[in-house]
């Protein structure tokens, strides 16, 4: 969807940030791409959005996006959530950008908490909003100490966390933000995506950029980079599985959300990725989308 002229606000530089700031962020991104998984500091700016609502992703998107790009914004899998709606509207206003809800049509996808089910391509960039870029933060509270461990590639503390989980609960309990080793070198947070999405980062065709505005850090996973979720040989990494398929599209390969279906005690699972779900339903019954069928 291309914005109407009256939707676009005057008086702003293209994509809100001034060109000097974009250059600074792009330099940081270039460095991040060169050192996959390594956190690069950048001069995070005030954005017209509270810190913690995606200001890092916003600045990364603003720095790499061009007038011909088509933007998709996802929040928890859906384009319709508040955060997604307002960030999409922001770029329509300050960049006059075309936006879409379809994964296949987007050239740049900014997302929070999910990676689309539809496989990405070499033509696409994925921008992830990151609240806490430091995967060791919980284990090593001091930033300098954590940076030393990265420098030494000493990730024993993270393995200890996994060890303790298995000793105590019989399995690793991390359901999201499950740490990954990027290119065999740097431990990184994949952002708070479900561990279900971790395998999508491995050897992805798309460039993934991670922005943390409040923490003033960004990092990157270039296309075709090995991304391994930490595990033990005898306790291999596993993604979530469901005993049922999506109640709407029947997919058994996507990440499912549990929703109430109206009836007392009844539980229902549907795709978290609304675009993927719709696309599948369209493919089986093309008339439904035209009739306005979305999520119930």
């Amino acid at each position: 969807m291309i914005p109407n002229d009256d939707e676009v606000a005057g008086g702003y530089n293209f994509a809100y940030l001034d060109e000097q700031t974009k250059r600074m962020v792009r330099r940081a991104i270039l460095k991040a791409v060169c050192i996959p998984g390594h956190q690069v500091p950048f001069g995070s700016r005030e954005m017209p959005l509270p810190a913690g609502w995606g200001t890092g992703g916003l600045q990364v998107t603003a720095s790499v996006i061009g007038p011909d790009d088509v933007l998709k914004v996802i929040d928890q899998g859906t384009d319709a959530a508040t955060n997604a709606v307002s960030i999409r509207a922001f770029f329509r206003r300050v960049a006059g950008l075309a936006t879409t809800e379809r994964t296949r049509e987007a050239s740049l996808i900014q997302t929070r908490h999910r990676i689309p089910e539809t496989p990405l391509t070499e033509e696409q960039i994925l921008v992830l909003q990151v609240p806490q870029p430091e995967p060791l933060r919980q284990l090593v509270p001091r930033g300098a100490a954590a940076r030393r461990l990265h420098a030494f590639a000493d990730y024993g503390v993270m393995y200890v966390k996994l060890y303790e989980d298995i000793a105590r609960f019989g399995r690793v309990t991390l359901a999201y933000d499950y740490p990954v080793l990027v290119n065999g070198r740097y431990l990184a947070s994949p952002s708070p995506i479900p561990r279900f999405d971790n395998p999508k980062l491995d050897n992805s065709r798309a460039l993934s950029l991670f922005g943390a505005g409040r923490e003033r850090r960004l990092y990157a996973i270039p296309p075709y980079t090995r991304v391994a979720s930490l595990d033990f040989g005898d306790h291999p990494f596993e993604v979530q599985r469901w005993s049922v398929g999506c109640a709407l599209c029947g997919s058994r390969a996507s990440y499912l959300d549990e929703i109430g279906s109206g009836g007392p005690g009844a539980r229902m699972f549907v795709c978290s990725d609304t675009d993927y779900c719709e696309e599948r339903r369209e493919a089986s019954a093309p008339a439904r989308r035209a009739a306005g069928g979305g999520r119930p």
Binding site: D154, G156, Y159, V160, Y163, I166, A167, F232, G233, D234
Partner: peptide, 17 residues
């Protein structure tokens, strides 16, 4: 157990058992 095992994990042992 974690205290004893940590240095081994640092040195690359990736087998819980």
């Amino acid at each position: 157990g974690g205290n004893v095992a940590e240095p081994l994990m640092v040195s690359g042992i990736r087998h819980y058992g």
